[in-house]
Simulated assay, not measured.
Amino acid sequence: MEPSELRRAVEAGRATASGLGLRVDDATVVHNSDRVALRLVPCDVLARVAPSGLLADSEFEVEVARRLADAGAPVAELDPRAEPRVHVRDGFAVSLWAYYEPMGPEIAPADYADVLLRHHAALRQIDLDAPHFTDRVAVALREVSDRERSPELPDADRALLSDTLGGVSASISSDTAGHQLLHGEPHPGNLLNTRRGPLFVDLATCCRGPVEFDLAHTPDDVAQHYAEADPDLIRRCRALTWAMFSAWRWRQDDRMPDREHWRVAGLNKVRAALST
């Protein structure tokens, strides 16, 4: 968010928690992108604040979290002191979550695979209307296809991303027999090492697809510890996920820090995945 919008988002998060009787003396920005994560103290709440245009996404995330918590999934939970819903305040959608103090060391590949296996098992226990991963691919493809939305994307790279998003997605989705609910983006930034053990966060990306689509977001060594995963399908999913990542970086309105670096790095990752 831009500084002026960020200030309003922080105030909306503080005011929402305070209005529910939680003590808020200070707010620290933990993450800032299209939505903001705030640590509120001393009540120790993580407030996720999004523009009201993302209200449906925020409500979906809260519903996913609520159902997964009931299923015993390894996920960050909503703050128990507040009603499990999204609060709308001053043009923002605010949800309140338990804050987990990060811990080291880095999660080992075998432990990463284990928590993802348990997460997938919990996802199979819930009945949820979620998009297919190809719906997200289609959004990325529209960004690449629209030169006004991605005017700086070179023609050769536009063709690479278009072919990957369209062709690889079609090859993966041709057989949906083994598809299930997924996290959607279980990369290391969305897996916290906490006193309770590893917990997944950022649940708004939940979608349907093969488990290999999730594994493509994890470090390379994780997949060998995940029983019966298809290495070739992981490779194709990895190319696809990096193509989606690259499509977002070439959007004219993308605000990711160090965007120029990630534009080049993302394209190189696509090429590397396709060449193996």
Rank of each mutant, 00 (worst) to 15 (best):
V201R: 14
L240K: 07
L55A: 07
W250E: 02
W248N: 06
C237V: 03
A69L: 04
L6Y: 03
H120E: 12
D258V: 00
D230L: 04
L203T: 07
A138R: 12
R236F: 10
P74V: 07
N32K: 09
T164K: 08
L267T: 02
R67I: 00
A273L: 07
G197Q: 01
H187Q: 10
V201L: 15
V10A: 02
S145R: 15
S162G: 15
D175K: 09
R35M: 05
F92Y: 11
A140I: 00
R236Q: 15
V270W: 11
E77H: 13
A227H: 14
V222A: 11
R235H: 08
R249W: 02
L191P: 05
H31W: 12
R8K: 15
E63I: 02
A229V: 10
T164H: 03
C206D: 02
R124L: 01
V75F: 09
C237G: 10
R85P: 01
V201H: 14
G13P: 05
G189W: 14
V29P: 01
H225Q: 06
A239N: 05
L182K: 04
I107L: 14
H225G: 10
D230G: 06
F133P: 08
Q180V: 08
A113V: 09
R158P: 04
G209K: 01
R235E: 07
D214M: 06
